[in-house]
Amino acid sequence: MTKRQNRMLFVALLVAGAILAITLLLQALGSNTNYFYSPTEVAEGKAPVGKSFRLGGLVAKGSVKRKDMKVNFDVTDNKNKFNIEYTGILPDLFREGQGIITTGSLVDGTFLATEVLAKHDENYMPPEVADALEKAKESKQK
């Protein structure tokens, strides 16, 4: 083996070793790397009990009830849903149908939130286009 081939082998082993190490690490971390749990995962009992965790999903349409600074709404993934209770300022993107992530804990079936963050999707368009899309969708449903 020439010196150059030797060095190639060294670099190849380096890359292979790094990939192996990271793969094992990620396997070990597993779902701990997930930033939030979906309502279905929570219903299946995957979320930690009696501890604070993050719940992510869509704000159910027509479920938002405000009373002073207190807000009540449902978070759903279209299979399961949980009622959220939160007191404080909501982010600008918070609205019905919006994806959100909330931190808190489950007490007697109600999720008492200490923080609500809005998630947005990867679609960007001007308001006119969004309106047109919405109209097209409505006329289709009729």
Binding site: I89, P91, D92, L93, F94, L117, A118
Partner: peptide, 8 residues
């Protein structure tokens, strides 16, 4: 302004 947090 969008998510409601600087960092997560």
């Amino acid at each position: 302004p969008m998510w409601g947090t600087w960092w997560v």
